[in-house]
Nucleic acid binder design. Sequence first.
DNA 1: GTTTAAAATAAGAGTCGTCTAACTAATTGT
DNA 2: ACAATTAGTTAGACGACTCTTATTTTAAAC
Lengths: 218, 218
Amino acid sequence: MLTEVVEEYLEAIYKMSLNGPVIAARLAEWMKVSPPTVADMLKRLSDKGLVKTSRRDGVKLTKKGLETAETMVRRHRLWERFLTDILGLHWDEVHEEACKLEHAISSPQVEEKLADILGHPETCPHGHPIPGTKGARKREKEAKPLSQCSVGDEAIIERVADEDSQLLQYLASLGLLPEARVAVKEIAPFKGPMLVNVCGAQYALGQEVAAKIMVKGK
Amino acid sequence: MLTEVVEEYLEAIYKMSLNGPVIAARLAEWMKVSPPTVADMLKRLSDKGLVKTSRRDGVKLTKKGLETAETMVRRHRLWERFLTDILGLHWDEVHEEACKLEHAISSPQVEEKLADILGHPETCPHGHPIPGTKGARKREKEAKPLSQCSVGDEAIIERVADEDSQLLQYLASLGLLPEARVAVKEIAPFKGPMLVNVCGAQYALGQEVAAKIMVKGK
DNA sequence: GTTTAAAATAAGAGTCGTCTAACTAATTGT
DNA sequence: ACAATTAGTTAGACGACTCTTATTTTAAAC
């Protein structure tokens, strides 16, 4: 049996590996833990056959590690959907809660029943694909940050790549939710803000914020 | 912040104290742990102001400890209701699962939303009262084991004081569920089985089983 | 090809929750 | 009242996860 902490590390490695090789030092930052702590843990994960580490490629999940990680991500995102769709929490309140709940499912049966009552959703409330549904992997790749769009572009928001409660609240207040259509009207020079149209209204978004909003070309 | 293990101990102490003074040795059996482990833990719980221990009275929860314990029991039983009523699991499958879920709620708000969608149930699927609903304490006291009934008695099943999956499955197969009406037809001598009527059928129940079924006089 | 910055490792320590083995109370039954 | 059972304590240990401080290795920059 794996501990919760082990599951958290696997999940982190999984998510980080979607953006290139996983460096232990980055993992330490992600987990808010010191580098020696990560080194210890990687040793343990390695011993359990969950990861392979090499100087060249960084940290890689093994088949077994990947399976566990995907299960955790799937459960996390299902719980997020439960928290918003069934309990009626806001999308900025669900991440922390789901982080705990994901480790509290003991069997695939319970996970499946949960998916059943939710209608087998394909994404979490922030737009991230739920592993185990078709096209999950594809979805993960196809989007690009709004900050990389040009003036005149129109796009649909695919997902928001941040769990920060404050940011999510702000985005929701502007109607910047998954499935919303945005149009880039203007980009101020020197990495300045972006003027975007959404739901008929126009807002200026900082680069930082725009970088977190993943869109798919209309 | 309290650890999950601490919460488990408080819950155990709470439940055990409903049947008289809590002896550390009994607690060790309940928690499936060695006596020194319990001694260590009681020291820690004491330091945190969650329990008081004395030779005379055994282990007693403080106000703070009692509050935590009741919260955990409440959450446990709410999750059990969720698992049966919403996910459709059987009553013999939910205890283990709820044991994990109960520690994964971070705020009274989430707990309250859960209670909302469940319709503020007063008991768990096994008939145990949910703390925080009126009469919960009263309920806990008023019932007596079926094994203490006499021939001719009629009673309503209040709850089943065991979480053993096998036993629960067996009881369900006989229709021995909370709210069911039972009539004692015969009691074999020398602590022999009890012949009871339920839903028109008649079954012989061993003393052990009958002792786990708590009833209230019709 | 040095220097510098970044990443990794080594050494030593602490907390939490658990164990076994051995010992000392305290109760209880007769 | 004393032997026997039961309860509790002491001592020493271990695994999981974390820390700090210091050092070494590797990679990048000039």
